[in-house]
Computed example of a mutant assay.
Amino acid sequence: MQFRPCIDLHHGKVKQIVGSSLTDENNSAQVNFESEHSPAYFVQMYRQDSLRGGHIIKLGPGNEMAAQEALAGWSEGLQIGGGITAENAMDHLDMGASHVIVTSYVFRDGRINFANLEKLVAVTGKERLVLDLSCKAHDGQYFIVTDRWQTFTDTVISQETLNQLASYCDEFLVHAASVEGLMAGPDLKLVRLLADSSPIPVTYAGGIATLEDVEAVRSAGCSRVHITIGSALDIFGGPLSYRSVVQACQ
C-alpha cells in the first residue's frame, strides 16, 4: 500500500472541500481548508518524500496557471485531472504530468462513451491514463458518478467493469464521494471490493482521518489498495500528521 498525496485546486488555490458540495453555480463548494502556500510548496514536499503517483485535481475553472506551476515542480512525478479531454490531454502530459486522470469525458450521458475513451487512449497511450471511477452507493451497489459527483451513471463498479476498463488504462482512482472530505472514516466495503476486483493499481480516497483508518484500509485492501488523504492531514489543517502517514506507508 502506497500513500499517494493530493493537491486539490479551487479558484487557483490549494483547498480541501467537501466533495459532494461542489456545484456548477459560481463553482462554489463547502471549503474545509484553504492553504496559504502555493501548489509548488506541496509539490516540493512530496518530491522530497519520493511520493510518486500523487494527483493534482482541478476543481472547476480558474486553475490552469496553478496546475502548470505544480507540474513544473516535478516532471512526471504527479498525475493531473479535471476537465481532461482527448484534445487537451497531451498538453497536460507535456507540462510534466506522468498521467492524466479522466472521468466525465469518458462517462457521459449516464454511460461509458467508448468512442471518447478510444480517442483518449490513442493520444495518451494506456500507460499514461488513469480512469477516475469515483462513486456513490445506491441499492447496495456502487455507481460511478460524474459532473462533480452530482450525476449517477448506469455503470456499476464490479469485477466485470474493472476488468473491461483496465484494458484501456494504467490505474484507477476511486473517490468514495459520499464520505469524501467528511473525515468520518473510510468506506471499507468499497475498499474490499476494489482489492478483490481490480486487476491494475487502484488508489482509494475518502474519509481516512486517523492512523487506525490507514491500517483499516491496509487490512481491508490486503495491502493492494493505495490511499490518498486530504482534509484530515495537518498540512491541510487537520489533526492527522502527514509525516506519520508517510512513515506508516513506507
Score class of each variant (00 low, 15 high):
R47D: 11
D49H: 14
D49M: 09
S50K: 15
S50L: 15
H55R: 04
I56G: 00
I57G: 00
P61A: 05
M65R: 14
A66N: 06
A66K: 07
Q68P: 04
A70P: 12
A70M: 07
A70C: 09
L71C: 08
L71W: 10
W74Y: 11
W74L: 15
S75Y: 15
S75C: 14
Q79N: 15
G82L: 00
G82D: 01
G83T: 01
I84L: 02
T85I: 09
T85L: 06
A86M: 13
A86Q: 08
E87I: 03
E87R: 09
N88T: 05
A89T: 13
M95N: 13
A97G: 11
S98G: 09
V100F: 04
V102G: 13
V102W: 05
T103A: 05
Y105N: 09
V106C: 07
V106I: 15
F107N: 02
G110W: 03
F114S: 11
A115W: 07
A115Y: 13
A115F: 10
A115I: 12
K119W: 08
L120N: 06
V121A: 06
A122H: 04
T124C: 14
G125D: 01
K126D: 06
K126L: 13
E127P: 12
L129F: 14
L129I: 13
V130M: 04
V130D: 04
L133W: 08
K136D: 05
G140S: 03
G140I: 04
I144F: 04
